[in-house]
């Protein structure tokens, strides 16, 4: 089979898999609210529902299309999802999609720098610890990472805010900007406001990936080809940078890409602590106010985002590890 044809077949296969995954997740997303006990309209109206007469409830149901057969609802929902149309928010009277676009942008502003900084930190510190296994530096870094990894992020974030914002007053308590600046000063203001949240998210990202990098190095150092590299008389530096780190790379890059999804959920907590208007606060508010269309839309967006990150991880793994890359070229599934 030609390489191009094999690669095309591989990607077609992958696309099919992701497509099926997406349909399943969309269906679950459709089913969960409907499978829940109780009437969605009563949930929606909360305590007011007891005072509303039946006719009005029926009208509301008709307005949301809930009086129609379930298969019709499903088809309409799927068609809407295909157009990324989830209707209107019940509480905010805005199109769900517009709401999500705005909030998603700010979540990305929060997580992109965190992923970049955290990943770089993890790579450098993981290498330092991995190559000096058992040393004081290694034990210190590993200890801190395990502590961070097991520490609830909301607690950590609140402690940091209490110390640096409340007591020391070095940073703002929350919000994305003070809202009085424009142009370059506005960007600086955002950077100032995002410093603590990005630092906290970076630290969590770094802690997790640090452990992976360190363990990956330990494992690779024990491989026979590292012994052979030593027998060739290559210096420790060449062995570490060329032979070991080159092997850490595929795993590192794919974990980074996969972590995009987890970062969004991590950001959720941080956004709430710092009152940042991102996806996290949007989901949180929607849960609190039972804004189902927004919740459904948000979940679909996150699903697509996570699937895209997974796909990116697959592709990058294939590029950095020729063994995986070759199986892509032959069109073989892995």
């Amino acid at each position: 089979m030609s390489l191009a044809k094999g690669r095309a077949r591989f990607f077609a296969g992958k696309a099919l898999r992701y497509g099926i995954t997406l349909v399943i997740i969309l269906s679950i997303n459709f089913a969960i609210p409907r499978a829940m006990p109780g009437d969605p309209m009563i949930n929606l109206l909360g305590e007011d529902a007891v005072r509303v007469d039946r006719q009005m409830l029926d009208e509301l149901r008709a307005q949301y299309g809930l009086d129609r057969p379930i298969q019709d609802q499903y088809i309409e929902y799927m068609l809407g999802a295909g157009r990324l149309d989830f209707g209107y928010s019940i509480h905010k009277n805005l199109k769900v999609t517009e709401l999500i676009y705005d909030r998603f942008f700010w979540t990305l502003v929060l997580i992109f720098p965190s992923i970049a900084i955290g990943g770089l930190l993890a790579l450098v510190l993981g290498a330092i610890a991995g190559f000096r296994q058992g040393s004081k530096v290694d034990r210190l870094l590993t200890g801190v990472s395990i502590f961070m990894y097991s520490c609830p992020s909301f607690l950590f974030a609140m402690v940091i805010v209490t110390i640096f914002s409340f007591h020391l007053g070095w940073f703002p308590l929350g919000n994305i900007s003070s809202g009085r600046t424009q142009g370059f000063a506005y960007l600086l203001d955002i950077g100032y406001h995002l410093f603590l949240p990005v630092a906290i998210l970076s630290a969590f990202e770094a802690a997790y990936i640090f452990l992976i990098v360190r363990n990956s190095i330990t494992q690779i150092m024990g491989e026979y080809f590292i012994f052979v590299a030593k027998a060739k008389g290559l210096s420790a530096r060449v062995i570490e940078l060329r032979h070991v780190m080159r092997n850490v790379l595929p795993q590192f890059i794919s974990i980074m890409a996969l972590n995009f999804g987890f970062m969004v959920s991590g950001a959720l907590i941080i956004e709430i602590v710092f009152s940042l208007n991102g996806m996290g606060t949007l989901i949180y508010d929607s849960v609190m106010s039972r804004d189902y269309p927004v919740l459904q839309g948000a979940f679909v967006f996150l699903t697509i985002f996570v699937l895209a990150a997974n796909f990116l991880a697959d592709v990058l793994y294939g590029i950095t590890d020729p063994r995986i890359g070759d199986s892509m070229n032959t069109g073989k599934m892995i």
Partner: peptide, 25 residues
């Protein structure tokens, strides 16, 4: 001196040929 000697003065043909090469280089 040791690094200079290895591979140049004394060279090893390692066992396990498939495991002797770095898989990503």
């Amino acid at each position: 001196e040791l690094l200079e000697m290895r591979g140049k003065a004394i060279s090893l043909v390692p066992q396990s040929p498939s495991a002797s090469f770095n898989p990503v280089i």
